[in-house]
């Protein structure tokens, strides 16, 4: 019975959920009244890895530490290719990169219809 006051209070409050983030809204949104932005992520967030090709020296440290083998080394150019679909977002590569060519971004909505889309391969 002791839960009843909490339930009554809840009746007059607004819902906690943030309905539907903007990027993946359906084409026909006539029945959706308002589309919200996703809730902002914290500063230390580990999201999609961004790669700065110019800075990269091809030391292969990120290839060595990546648990998901998401980093592919390109021996001719001495650069890497990052496969976002394989990435598990641990950001260990960001920590080990000696020249800060890799960084975690705040991007996390990574669904795509084409698996070869440039959004899913960083090079």
């Amino acid at each position: 019975m002791s839960i009843i006051p909490t339930l009554l209070k809840q009746l007059v409050k607004k819902p906690f959920t943030n309905p539907f983030p903007k990027k993946h809204a359906p084409n026909k949104v006539s029945d959706v009244k308002k589309i919200n932005d996703p809730i902002p992520v914290p500063d230390d967030f580990r999201g999609k890895i961004k790669y700065d090709r110019a800075k990269c020296i091809g030391c292969r440290m990120c290839v060595t530490v990546c648990p998901a083998n998401a980093m592919e080394y390109l021996p001719k150019e001495k650069k890497i290719k990052h496969h976002v679909l394989r990435c598990i977002m641990c950001a260990e590569c960001v920590d080990v990169c000696p020249v800060k060519a890799l960084s975690s971004s705040k991007e996390f909505l990574l669904a795509e219809t084409d698996k070869k889309s440039p959004n899913l391969i960083e090079k």
């Binding site: 992520v41 914290p42 500063d43 230390d44 967030f45 580990r46 950001a91 260990e92």
Partner: peptide
């Protein structure tokens, strides 16, 4: 947990020999 580590699940805080954050 999100505020302290950056993410809500799989915090990635541990490293061999210490912590990251």
């Amino acid at each position: 947990l999100e505020y302290l580590s950056g993410n809500r699940v799989n915090y990635g805080v541990y490293v061999i020999g210490g912590v990251r954050r």
